[in-house]
Nucleic acid binder design. Structure first.
Lengths: 232, 232
DNA sequence: GCCACGTGAATTGTTCAACAATCTCCGTGT
DNA sequence: ACACGGAGATTGTTGAACAATTCACGTGGC
């Protein structure tokens, strides 16, 4: 049966390509569409339409919805359907609440970091700087997210990594919900560099407190921008 | 249509009782069965059998499995089925990794706590003490979990509360997987009280560091017990 | 004009029956 | 002892069905 196995594997790779992974697959497809900015916040996701578009049954699509709902990327309203999440002010507050504990904790108690980790942070910062100088807002936002992910990675917890990724995915939704102002991300490039410098100098406690102040300021700036957007 | 509505609501409450909630309902039923200790770790959850037992279709049961899998209460092995999770040593390490950041962070940065929060902690500690004196292991474990939940609640984040609940649910699975030693929980009653005292004295930083040491010790003690159990 | 009120269509929640893919178990031959 | 095949059981996925609920819209009363 080995030959048939190989055949089946190839068929799986080329064509439709899945048994026991369809739900994950669909969830992934939707996740990137949403992160990319197609399917903006508030969009209603019709089961029939999406199911036929992706070539999966309504049941399977539903499973994917379950996954995305658990990640807060999508909102399920009973008997009304699922929508691309549109984070509220309270959602933003919760995002920063999470970050304001998670990131400082990872800085404060993450231990002395390996040279590799420090090098990776430096690379991310360099990427952010060149994106800023090139005026590439998307790349700047990406690099910023990568920096904060790297900070949390110091904790070495898969769970925290996942939580941070979810929270940052929600941040993307916030940005997609409003006009993406180029001047918004720029100041944070050097703020990140400052944190990295403190960390490299083994001043973890100061890095942690600096991060808390940083996040406090970022939150109020973002909330102000959102309010401005709402009253426009 | 108000009368028909009321009728429908009553019918819903009395009989089968759900449209748009069945998945949650089933997940909840399974969750308590597992937490209670029926369905011990490693148990295979047959779709056909469980579905008919709970009076739901295989599809709906599957949705419930998805919810529980996201909570790490249940393990999904593709094409093999779902099993009540049997936490490995690495899982235990991850649990304590999470707790070792989350709880100290909540202590350190949770701010001055309200009298209500302090009073609730004291009540929990009193409950733990009387359970210990009465030799009621289950009640002691419950009170201990409540204390640590109260600590994390200082952060005021629904997300952290949920994460802590999940992690503690996994801890229950660990305890169900081994013989529940009465002498195991007892020492932690006073350790909790010490943390609470530091907090009440506004010595948050010491409370945080104390908690880290506490959790370090608890982890190695638990890992040793698990290893002992494995080699039995 | 405008608001309460059905009424019918559209959509979701759930079930059921089927089938393909995969795993498990068990005998067989070597 | 051990690889090799099947037969049966279980999971993964689909499609169609139906009940429950919401939504859109036209009607009538004020």
């Amino acid at each position: 049966m080995t030959f048939d196995d190989a055949l089946a594997a190839m068929r799986r790779l080329s064509s439709g390509a899945r048994h026991a992974h369809t739900g994950q697959w669909v969830a992934g497809a939707l996740r990137t569409r949403i992160a990319e900015g197609d399917l903006p916040p508030g969009t209603k996701l019709l089961e029939e339409a999406l199911g036929s578009a992706l070539g999966v049954s309504r049941n399977t699509l539903r499973e994917a919805f379950g996954i995305l709902a658990a990640e807060n990327i999508v909102t399920r309203v009973p008997n009304r359907g699922v929508f691309v999440a549109r984070p509220t002010a309270e959602d933003i507050a919760e995002i920063y609440r999470v970050r304001r504990y998670l990131e400082p904790a990872a800085l404060r108690w993450g231990g002395a970091d390996s040279g590799a980790a420090a090098a990776e942070r430096d690379a991310v910062i360099a990427r952010a700087r060149s994106a800023r100088d090139a005026g590439d807002v998307a790349a700047m936002a990406d690099a910023n997210q990568d920096f904060h992910k790297a900070v949390v990675a110091r904790a070495g917890s898969a769970r925290f990594d996942a939580m941070m990724s979810e929270v940052l995915a929600e941040m993307r939704l916030v940005f997609h919900g409003m006009g993406d102002d180029p001047a918004f991300h720029a100041p944070y490039v050097e703020a990140n560099a400052d944190i990295a410098a403190l960390l490299r100098a083994d001043r973890a406690d100061e890095a942690a407190e600096g991060m808390r102040a940083y996040l406090d300021q970022a939150e109020s700036q973002l909330l102000a921008a959102v309010r401005r957007e709402r009253d426009r």
